[in-house]
């Protein structure tokens, strides 16, 4: 663990006074897609540009962002399963070590696992038991899988069924159990809640919590702030491909006085149980070039400096914020 300290010299200081390096850390992550327009002219589509995040063992960090902010691609980037024309920069550290392409290939499915969002994530022509067993690395594949199915409340004969024979809720349980059978240290849950009724949603959230109490670090990607606040320790707010704020769960209270970034405040106050004030305008599209702060166009407190230079993420009040005026 000590060796890696030197690699981290460029890191921005962390908000928390951690003694050991976090289990998982993302610094200045950017993701662009190379595109060929007419003929051979190449253009770049920038989807993520300044993503920063850190997660400790046993911690749940929610990444909250609206649709189209690049959330799902974030998961793909960390796992290294992006299409070939994607380019990334910045660095991702896992257990203090830089997550290189080779490491990604070695670790994914083992130390880093994904809980996908879609119920289409299971192979339609393969029995679900088998699909879960493929994650188990030791010899007792079947036994391990059966035990987990029992744990999440799936009947024993479920493992011999095909995905089309299961309900949406059952499929989610199967997907969660793929994370539970693994010895993963980091679980990336890619929108596990949308489209679920309240009971199923609560259930899904409880599974996340259970995984965290087992000592796994959870990156909980969602657009559901309420769900995020129920279980997360920290909330990273993602806007147009950038982390604009990393807040603690307690900061989301009252009228959002403790929140640092104007976007987070707007998001909080837009909730029905709060002031229900919608935020006007739309977020910049992927590839749209923004010279300064990505939120400047919609920001109520933006000044000239906001449109000129990209603000850096800086620690503030036990959290982080990317804003000049916070």
């Amino acid at each position: 663990m000590e060796i890696q300290q030197s690699q981290k010299k460029e890191n921005i200081p962390l908000a928390q006074n951690e003694k050991s390096p976090p289990l998982f850390e993302v610094n200045h992550l950017a993701l662009t897609f190379r595109q060929y327009e007419k003929g051979l002219r190449e253009s770049n589509l920038r989807v993520i540009r300044n993503f920063d995040l850190s997660i400790n063992q046993g911690e749940i960090v929610a990444v909250v962002g609206a649709s189209g902010s690049g959330k799902s691609l974030l998961a793909d980037t960390i796992l290294g399963i992006l299409p070939e024309h994607a380019e990334t920069s910045g660095n991702i550290l896992f257990q203090g070590k830089i997550l290189t392409k080779e490491n990604q290939i070695r670790l994914r499915g083992k130390d880093i696992v994904l809980i996908p969002q879609s119920t289409n994530a299971l192979d339609p022509l393969m029995k679900v038991g088998k699909q879960v067993q493929s994650v188990v690395k030791n010899k007792h594949k079947k036994a391990v899988q059966e035990r987990i199915f029992q744990k999440v409340g799936l009947a024993k004969d479920t493992s011999d069924r095909y995905p089309f024979e299961l309900s949406g809720g059952m499929i989610r349980r199967v997907l969660v159990s793929t994370a539970m059978v693994s010895d993963a240290k980091l679980v990336i849950a890619d929108e596990p809640t949308p489209g679920l009724d309240e009971q199923a949603r609560d259930e899904a959230i409880q599974y996340m919590k259970k995984l965290a109490t087992e000592g796994k670090a959870i990156m909980f990607i969602t657009h559901d702030i309420t769900a995020a606040l129920e279980i997360a320790d920290k909330v990273a707010v993602f806007y147009a491909g950038e982390t604009v704020e990393i807040a603690n769960t307690e900061d989301f209270s009252g009228k959002g006085e403790n929140l640092r970034h104007p976007y987070t405040k707007a998001l909080w106050n837009a909730l029905p149980q709060n002031d229900f004030i919608p935020l006007k305008g739309i977020q910049p599209l992927p590839g749209e070039s923004v010279s300064g702060c990505v939120f400047a166009a919609r920001c109520p407190i933006a000044t000239d400096v906001c449109t000129e230079d990209v603000p850096q993420l800086r620690p503030l009040n036990h959290g982080m914020v990317r804003c000049y005026h916070a």
């Binding site: 796992l79 994914r108 499915g109 994904l114 996908p116 994530a121 339609p124 994650v135 793929t178």
Partner: peptide, 13 residues
């Protein structure tokens, strides 16, 4: 497909 993405995430290539 989503299931190919998930399979890749599970370390299958």
């Amino acid at each position: 497909s989503e299931y190919a993405r998930f399979a890749k995430a599970k370390g299958e290539t």
